[in-house]
Design a protein around this nucleic acid. Structure first.
Ligand code: NAD
Ligand code: NAD
Lengths: 256, 256
DNA sequence: AGGCGCTTGTGAAGACGTGCACAAATCGCG
DNA sequence: CGCGATTTGTGCACGTCTTCACAAGCGCCT
């Protein structure tokens, strides 16, 4: 189908290489690689093997190589990957060559933390606006930015070019806020409110739900506990196996 | 009505249905179903069809039915699922029948927001301790809890039975904190610091990284933009990018 | 130049996840 | 009591993701 272009692609690196369509799973890992690469660059590494980078990013090296191969051939056999070049490539693919503007809606408990978070700035983004519906909050200054009323969104969107909207309002308000964001042309939303948003096609939504993460962990806790409790279900008696076999697996100290 | 048994399961009559091992993807969705079910229960629904629940949870109904079928047969053909029963089942499987104790380490910017978050309590958890390394923070009271020094962790773990540790420290401290948590017997960790943690087998780690989420969204923004720019082969003439807002084409909204 | 060790890039196979489509089960009603 | 309407539970086919294993490529050393 898609003709693989040869390593000497028509467009020079840095110009406009047509961006391949990557598997979603790969896209989700590229940011991890990018973070690991920045750490490596800071510690003076100029090249890194797939094994080393995979280690730093916490993944399997074969998977890493396959992921990177989707971007093109940017490694050197027998040597590894050029750290700087790879950073540029991944940043290009992720669209981080321009610093995207983020609008944060809902400057409450969580919103305050987000507004003061330096990871926005250090990793390719820029908070372009803080918005809230509560008149008591409007005018408050956080980290050098002033909270504006959410009704100002159309004006803000016209002035700054908002790429991404972040929703940190209560769940009851989230859908309305999402609608407002979509109305002013935002096509990417990060939602912290625990609810599903419905948006038109062409708009991407990602959600972060703390309670869901905890509940997934809870499930695994539950399972680990039940494993030690009921080893088998077969007709055979309960032979005491906790001593011997499970050395490689769980080392749990769940006692008490 | 609540004759619960299902074919082939060794479900002993009584309180301990052996918990099946669920596909990871299913486990990750159960919390979503649970949230949707609670909403439905609050709005007076006693039963719900797979279509209705799938809708409320933002998934495909076939997928939902397959997910639920892994827990056993708790639906009634021609009718749907009993909301209350399903809530109980999912909460049981997720291990939410006991309110698990959470230790929050790192009470800074983000930690404050988390400490004040009522979603912990309303969705099956209990903040058992707030810990920080900064002496200036120790003693501070947040939401009725007092911040303790992180060195108190062993004592706290002995008093309360900590099921889950949440790390909200800077990345530089995260590994050390993880080690301390593991040392006192914690086998589930939720990590907000942007770094990989290495832990022994048997310990589960989940991470939440805001910047990664934004970067994934950025990728899709980038791709949407490039799709409108080059419809076919590379010889694009000047793409007249209208001053108005571009209406993008179908792209899928999905997350996690 | 040639060989050797190291590392990438990838084909193939298998594991896993998804969604369709339909039989089986249940309810309500005449 | 039987029938049609409805909805679950699942077999199956398909797509995506992971992992293995190894040939091809590269640099270095002799
Ligand atoms: N606090 C946390 O640690 C945390 C963690 C995970 C998820 N969440 C979720 O994040 C969301 C925010 O949590 P929070 O603790 O900051 O709540 P909060 O009540 O402290 O803040 C909500 C803010 O949103 C504003 N708001 C309400 N309606 C609005 C609207 N229509 N438009 C614009 N702004 C509006 C409010 O004025 C308030 O300032 C909630 O949905 C919560 O469930 C919070
Ligand atoms: N603020 C955000 O919105 C946000 C969003 C996403 C991720 N994060 C991440 O969450 C983490 C915390 O962010 P923050 O903004 O709250 O930072 P912060 O500096 O405000 O807070 C960090 C806290 O951790 C404490 N700490 C440091 N070392 C410790 C140790 N060894 N043991 C116990 N406590 C220790 C510090 O005393 C401080 O109170 C960072 O890794 C950050 O990258 C923050």
């Amino acid at each position: 189908m898609s003709q693989h272009r040869h390593p000497g692609a028509p467009g020079r690196a840095g110009a406009v290489p047509a961006l391949p369509d990557l598997p979603e799973a790969t896209v989700a890992r590229l940011p991890e690689y990018l973070r690991a690469l920045h750490n490596l660059a800071e510690t003076g590494h100029e090249t890194i093997s797939s094994e080393g980078l995979a280690n730093a990013a916490g993944v399997n090296s074969a998977k890493l190589r396959k992921d990177l191969s989707h971007l093109g051939s940017y490694g050197t056999r027998g040597v590894g990957y050029d750290v700087g070049l790879l950073i540029d490539q991944i940043e290009y693919v992720l669209g981080l060559t321009q610093r995207r503007a983020v609008a944060l809606v809902g400057v409450g408990n969580l919103g305050h933390a987000l507004a003061g978070y330096d990871g926005f700035v250090s990793r390719g983004f820029r908070i372009a606006a803080l918005l809230d519906a509560d008149p008591a909050r409007v005018g408050e200054e956080i980290n050098g930015m002033t909270v504006q009323h959410v009704d100002e969104l159309p004006r803000v969107a016209a002035e700054e070019s908002i790429a991404i909207g972040v929703i940190a309002t209560p769940a009851t308000a989230a859908q309305a806020v999402a609608d407002q964001l979509v109305a002013v042309g935002v096509t990417s939303i990060l939602n912290f409110a625990p609810c599903v948003l419905s948006v038109p096609d062409g708009v991407d939504v990602r959600k972060v739900d703390l309670a869901i993460e905890l509940q997934i962990l809870s499930f695994h806790e539950h399972r680990k506990a039940s494993l030690t409790a009921l080893p088998t279900t077969g007709g055979s008696a309960l032979t005491a196996l906790p001593g011997g076999l499970a050395v490689t697996e769980s080392q749990e100290a769940i006692g008490t």
